[in-house]
Design a binder for these strands. Structure first.
Lengths: 208, 208
DNA sequence: TCATCCAGTTAACAACTGTTCTCCGGAATT
DNA sequence: AATTCCGGAGAACAGTTGTTAACTGGATGA
């Protein structure tokens, strides 16, 4: 059912992607609410008015960036949470996955961290909606685990949120250590592992 | 040793405070990196050039706002963490304190949450430095607790960071629920309590 | 082949930005 | 009483901003 796009639509999507890429690069050193429309078109190498063919406003572009940054991440999270193995190796694998993702998509991660509480309401809401989805998916995976026996729904969702928030905090720490020596990156890894370990311990004794 | 300021210095501090207040109000709906110098002076009702008498740039103003927002909060945190009582009442008291602070200083809290990962580097660093201080202070209080026996320094600091991050997350949730019905605010309280409870459980069984 | 569509261009608009230099008048100092 | 200090005002600067309208030329579909 994947129809090959016409020359026209293909070109449009190409320039649209160029807008997204240019904006993401510019947003490494500023927030969305200060990103100018002309600034983006200049970076793409196109007339200012061309912007309107793709986005209503920079806020609109921001929402598109949220989808690009988080939309394709859901399957990854699902499989990571559900992978079998001892708790210690699961923790190591999750942290490894975060570290790798920050390495390969630093600008996307920075954008999400920055605009989650940023100055543009529609973007904040888009991010919040995605994070709620993540939490629900994590909760669904947690519910399958044998350790979830006896847990009520509210407690499961609470734990899922805790995990999601913790992942964001860890990602942000890796981001800060991106250009730091390997030593500091290792310290971030250790800290994150310890925190996940403590949560795991709390989870294990929750029903006492 | 508190010397009464001369008329001149008093007036200067007064306008400086007017700058801070006006900026904080403007920052409710945008981020610092898009805050214009003229925008602030217009809100204060003063000539644009007057700005330079108080701040080098808007980034400089932002750093001053960080100190105003977090500087006076340290004693509060210290006493809150160290207050005696059962763990359940301590949790309730901490959450109550956060809720009250968000109610009385919403703009300050929003500013910190927004600029913690925002687009202005000096401000990010100022916030980070303050949060590190908070974590160290919390760690020092935790170390006094009888439950900390056998804990090493790294683990204590890890737990302290967990608490500090959790406080920020909770504050941010209260902020989102500021104008929401009491029902939702109660749900935030319950969620935060549950999460702190799980951390407490993990803490209690850490040395197993 | 011819008419239609539409992504991108060009030109122009009033409004706004940060920063400079020069000046004023009341407070502070001598 | 005379002088210095200094927070703020005023005017002007070159550049920037978002948005509009009318246009161009190649892809599209009849």
């Amino acid at each position: 059912m994947s129809h090959t796009l016409g020359i026209r639509q293909a070109q449009k999507q190409k320039t649209r992607q160029a807008f997204l890429d240019a904006a993401l690069a510019l947003l490494e050193e500023q927030s969305l609410s200060s990103l100018g429309l002309r600034e983006v078109t200049r970076a793409v190498g196109v007339a200012p008015t061309a912007f309107y063919r793709h986005f209503r406003s920079t806020a609109d572009l921001g929402v598109a960036l949220v989808d690009e940054a988080l939309g394709s991440l859901h399957p990854m999270v699902r499989t990571t949470v559900s992978t079998a193995g001892g708790s210690e190796e699961r923790i190591a694998r999750a942290i490894e996955l975060i570290a790798r993702h920050v390495d390969t998509h630093p600008a996307h991660v920075r954008f999400i961290a920055r605009e989650r509480h940023g100055g543009v309401q529609p973007v904040r809401e888009a991010i919040r909606a995605q994070l709620v989805r993540f939490a629900e998916e994590v909760k669904a995976e947690l519910a399958k685990d044998s350790e979830a026996a006896g847990w009520n729904d509210d407690d499961l969702l609470m734990l899922a949120h805790l995990y999601v928030d913790q992942m964001l905090i860890t990602a942000s720490l890796f981001l800060e250590a991106l250009e730091a020596p390997a030593e500091q990156r290792e310290r971030v890894t250790q800290l994150a592992a310890r925190q996940l370990r403590l949560i795991t311990v709390g989870r294990r004794h929750w029903l006492d």
